[in-house]
Computed example of a mutant assay.
Amino acid sequence: MSEAVPDPAASFLPVRPALIGLGYRMTGSWATAEDIAQDVYLRWQATDRAIVALPRAWLMKAAARLALDHLKSARVRREDYVGPWLPEPVLDSEAAPQEAAWARSETLSLAFMLVLERLSPPERAIFILHDLFDTNFGEIAGLLGRSEATCRQIAVRARAKLGDAAPRHGLAATESDSLTQAFFAATQSGDEAMLRHLLARDVVVHTDGGGIRPAALKLIYGDDKAARMFAALARKRAGAARSMLFAGLINGEPGYVTLEPDGLPQVTVLTIADDRIAAIYIIRNPEKLRAIADQLGLSLT
């Protein structure tokens, strides 16, 4: 009797978090990352697995190719995106796209994901595969059809573009929770003085509505403009209910999910430095909130 064909799931499932992590960091989309992982699994099922010496390398290579294809087309579509673009947010949970706990806060933050946008698709692929997922340059060279030396040069160029842009987290969880709750309360009440107290002088506010929901079309710089904007929004709501559905880590940073007066969720993520809020990321585009809505039992219709 011939030997039974090994179950493809047995070799795929342990690698699936890495595939989603790679896809998410490459594309900025949780949904796309899950689709990539599913597509890789279908290809893995159809492959003669008996001749694959290193299943993880095969699976990562397949995911990287799919992510590169998506990234190239997404960059064209993004040229027509309305307002600032932000990645899809991910609640900090066991389902987060990661291989190790350290990766959650350092390479999943929205700040770092935005920094990755500086890289060309090949630079992004090589940096993520090598520096974040420990893939050797020989394997990467085979993936991209370039020499190993060229891949090393591209990796150096990518690191130079990124510089020291990875975010630093200096507050204990209790301190960041307190600051997050204070910020939410101030945006509810429109307390402009409290907002200025909480914000860093050079705070930057990113708002992503995708042209679907109202949002600022440009970044907002400085504590004065930011405080006035949040105070004005509170006055505009004038008693309309906003309920907090989740408070905790989102993409490794403190944040919360609210149900807004229009009946749709909104995600707010804070970057905290030196006891002040240094950056604010507000995601309102419902197309980027489907995974979080599902987790929280919300309907986007």
Results as ranks from 00 to 15, higher is better:
N136P: 05
F137T: 13
F137N: 01
G138M: 13
E139I: 01
I140D: 03
A141H: 07
G142L: 08
L144Q: 04
R146F: 12
R146G: 04
R146A: 11
T150A: 15
T150V: 13
C151R: 03
C151M: 14
C151Q: 04
Q153D: 12
Q153V: 06
Q153M: 02
V156M: 08
R157I: 05
A158V: 05
A158F: 03
R159W: 09
G163W: 08
G163L: 10
D164W: 11
A166L: 10
P167M: 10
H169G: 04
L171G: 06
A172E: 14
A172S: 14
A173I: 08
A173H: 06
A173E: 13
T174H: 15
S176D: 15
D177G: 09
S178W: 08
Q181M: 06
A182D: 10
F183T: 02
F183N: 00
F184P: 01
F184A: 09
A185K: 05
A185M: 05
A185W: 10
A186C: 11
A186K: 06
T187Y: 02
Q188C: 08
Q188A: 14
Q188G: 09
S189F: 00
G190S: 07
G190F: 08
D191Y: 01
A193N: 03
M194Q: 12
M194Y: 00
L195A: 08
R196I: 06
H197Y: 08
H197C: 00
H197L: 09
L198Y: 05
R201P: 02
V203T: 14
V203D: 09
V203Y: 09
V203C: 11
V204N: 04
V204S: 04
V204I: 15
H206F: 15
D208N: 01
G209F: 02
G210D: 04
G210E: 02
G210F: 08
G211N: 12
G211F: 13
G211S: 05
I212K: 09
R213N: 03
R213A: 07
P214H: 00
A215C: 03
A215Q: 00
A216K: 07
L217S: 12
L219R: 12
L219H: 12
I220T: 10
I220C: 06
Y221Q: 15
D224N: 11
A226M: 09
A226R: 07
A227W: 11
A227V: 07
A227P: 04
F230C: 01
F230N: 01
A231R: 01
A231S: 13
A232W: 00
A232G: 00
L233D: 05
L233Y: 02
L233A: 04
A234C: 09
R235E: 10
G239Q: 04
S243G: 10
S243K: 15
M244Q: 14
M244C: 15
L245H: 13
F246Q: 06
A247C: 13
G248N: 09
G248A: 10
I250L: 14
N251R: 11
N251K: 08
P254N: 03
V257P: 02
T258I: 10
T258P: 00
L259R: 15
E260N: 11
E260T: 12
E260P: 00
P261D: 14
G263L: 11
L264Q: 10
L264F: 12
P265R: 00
P265H: 07
Q266V: 07
Q266T: 07
V267F: 12
V267G: 10
T268C: 14
V269H: 02
L270H: 05
L270G: 02
T271E: 15
I272A: 07
A273P: 00
A273Y: 02
A273Q: 11
D274Q: 15
